[in-house]
Design a protein around this nucleic acid. Structure first.
Length: 273
DNA sequence: ACGAGCGCCTGTCGGC
DNA sequence: TGCCGACAGGCGCTCG
């Protein structure tokens, strides 16, 4: 469940606690269990354990689709990729066969990295910029402006859909929110970025922020077997609605493959000139 | 610079 | 029922 709104939701839950479960800030790492070595991007398992044990969680934040824990000495970074999730559990809770890492605290609780498909990655670094350097602007941040988006679109020659998925262009959009933003902006996924005019760029900028903000308000989207309580999936206009009526004009939603990703759009509302 | 194809993994679903 | 392909919220790599 990992695009910007879902990661933001997880970060908020870890920061403040949810249900009976505690907030993470203030907890000290007592032990580390690495159940699938390749989930660890860096450093080596031995160094990871040695450095992590004893550190205290200070802050929890998000950059793009990355979730970051600021610790007393280092930063612990997670990328959930396709199927990753972070869960706070009690020590007596059963260990899921999909748990890839467990960080046990000096309390009866642990932070479990659950990831059926094993695509997710974890980094322990002193400087998060080592990992974040190539990321584009935060779409909900002040540095992301309609004018800036317009200029960036014009200086490239890319199809809009793959460009929105490019994390060095904007950090945090994935397949759902790229499709939903393009629909709301009335732009075809294959439109060349340098053909977008100023008015269209303004509308795309508003659409990106609108879908992300609305999804965060709804605690993200929950699809398939991964469920975290978000309900933005009930407000999708095009994503996985192939054949269903466009909410604006009634035309059946179409699906095509762009850059190996399923892409959903309304052929009437998002025409290709 | 850009896009296509593939690899990494496991699970679900629909068709035959 | 069992098998098989398509598909799934991502990204890094190689190759034209």
């Amino acid at each position: 469940m990992p695009e910007l709104p879902e990661v933001e939701t997880i970060a908020r839950n870890l920061r403040t606690g949810y249900g009976d479960l505690p907030a993470l800030p203030g907890l000290q790492v007592r032990q580390v269990e690495l159940l699938w070595d390749r989930s660890l991007a860096t450093p080596s398992p031995q160094e990871f354990r040695a450095r992590l044990i004893g550190q205290t969680v200070e802050q929890i934040w998000r950059r793009g689709k990355f979730l970051a824990l600021t610790l007393s000495k280092d930063h612990l970074l997670f990328h959930l990729r396709m199927s990753g999730d972070l869960l706070v559990e009690r020590e007596e809770d059963p260990i899921s066969p999909y748990h890839r890492m467990m960080i046990e605290f000096n309390t009866p609780y642990r932070l479990s990295f659950n990831d059926p498909r094993k695509f997710g990655r974890v980094w322990l670094v002193d400087d998060p910029q080592m990992v974040f350097r190539s990321l584009g602007p935060e779409p909900l941040g002040e540095e992301f402006t309609a004018q800036g988006l317009y200029r960036s679109l014009r200086e490239r020659h890319r199809q809009l859909k793959p460009l929105l998925l490019d994390q060095s262009f904007i950090a945090g959009l994935g397949n759902i929110y790229a499709d939903e933003a393009l629909f709301r902006a009335g732009l075809h996924p294959l439109l060349a970025s340098d053909k977008v005019n100023e008015r269209q760029a303004q509308r795309l900028w508003e659409s990106i922020r609108l879908v992300l903000e609305e999804s965060i308000r709804r605690n993200g989207a929950s699809i398939d077997w991964v469920y975290r309580g978000g309900d933005f999936q009930n407000y999708f206009r095009v994503y996985r609605r192939t054949g269903g009526p466009c909410t604006v004009c009634g035309t059946p939603v179409a699906r095509m493959v762009v850059g190996q990703r399923g892409t959903h759009y309304c052929p009437h509302c998002q025409p290709l000139p």
